[in-house]
């Protein structure tokens, strides 16, 4: 029983990181119907910024987190302005391929500057408590609480503020939103900034939880988070959070009760089956085909 609780805790930790990344995918998809395949690598940059903040700059926890988030936000905006904005009217696939290219570039630029895996020093002196056989580390609690706070904040932002209204208006119909006076370019850039900063936060937390980082870490984690976003129903913010937690739970529970090499196999097979049963994700709405 204690073992199960322990695993649920681990699942929450991994799931909250997936959920944070999935939010970036789903926000960009919601506003531009574009899969931003570079997002997994923005997550990786977030982890490396954490490393830079901890070693080169010697920052403490909160400034380092802000450094990662702001750095990634800036990167997200730059990528959007330089690479995606010119392609808004092009076929959607061109933007997707550009995103793949940008992602590869980020990976290999990081590889140029850091050819070896890096070890991130502990920014958070982690204490652990034992509650009825379950080991609870303060880092775990921190990761879960911080991600949930960020998600609640984002949900509030999208549902209750003018900026959120503008985001939803653009995802509803970009042209009409522009006619109604929504500053489309600025809002899209801001959406990228928010999504990328969440990815940066995820990278930061990931680097603290699993402290060996390398330039390719964003590939698999990023694709998995994308799958989480799709499982929840892409374009749907609450769906992305749900999908992230489901994916984390499936992975951890498979690894806990079966040989761990089966983790990816079973996780992906389950997702495959889920998508066949619910092709638009759990919370997604099927879009009717117009004639």
């Amino acid at each position: 029983m204690a073992y199960l609780f322990q695993q649920i805790l681990n699942a929450l930790q991994l799931g909250s990181i997936y959920a944070l990344i999935a939010l970036g995918y789903t926000m960009v998809y919601g506003i531009m119907t574009m899969i931003n395949f570079a997002h997994g690598d923005i997550f990786m940059v977030g982890a490396f910024l954490c490393f830079v903040a901890a070693t080169v700059l010697g920052l403490s926890f909160i400034p380092a987190l802000l450094f990662s988030m702001l750095g990634c936000a800036l990167l997200g905006v730059v990528i959007e302005r330089l690479a995606y904005k010119p392609l808004r009217e092009a076929p959607r696939v061109s933007a997707v391929i550009t995103a793949l290219g940008v992602g590869l570039m980020l990976e290999h630029l990081t590889l140029v500057f850091s050819p070896y895996p890096r070890h991130v020093p502990a920014l958070w002196s982690s204490a652990s408590w034992h509650v009825g056989g379950v080991t609870l580390s303060s880092l775990q609690v921190l990761i879960i609480v911080l991600s949930v706070l960020l998600m609640v904040f984002l949900d509030w932002l999208v549902r209750r503020t003018m900026l959120g209204l503008a985001i939803r208006a653009i995802s509803w119909d970009r042209t009409v939103a522009a006619i109604m006076g929504v500053p489309v370019d600025a809002v899209i850039s801001l959406t990228f900034a928010i999504g990328a900063s969440l990815g940066g936060a995820a990278g930061f937390l990931y680097a603290l939880a699993y402290p060996v980082i390398d330039p390719y870490m964003g590939v698999i984690v990023g694709w998995k988070a994308f799958i989480a976003a799709v499982v929840g129903g892409i374009g749907n913010i609450r769906g992305a959070m749900l999908g992230g937690f489901i994916l984390g739970a499936v992975e951890i529970l498979v690894a806990a009760f079966l040989p761990s090499t089966y983790r990816d196999l079973i996780a992906f097979a389950l997702l495959f089956i889920l998508l066949i049963c619910k092709p638009y994700g759990i919370l997604g709405q099927p879009r009717p085909q117009k004639v």
Binding site: A83, G101, G103, L104, M105, L111
Partner: peptide
């Protein structure tokens, strides 16, 4: 060397920007 792996995707991005098809 490693820069090759930076230049290849960069070429791809430039191509997509100036000749999206």
């Amino acid at each position: 060397g490693v820069w090759r792996m930076v230049i290849m995707p960069l070429l791809l991005v430039l191509l997509m920007l100036f000749r999206p098809r």
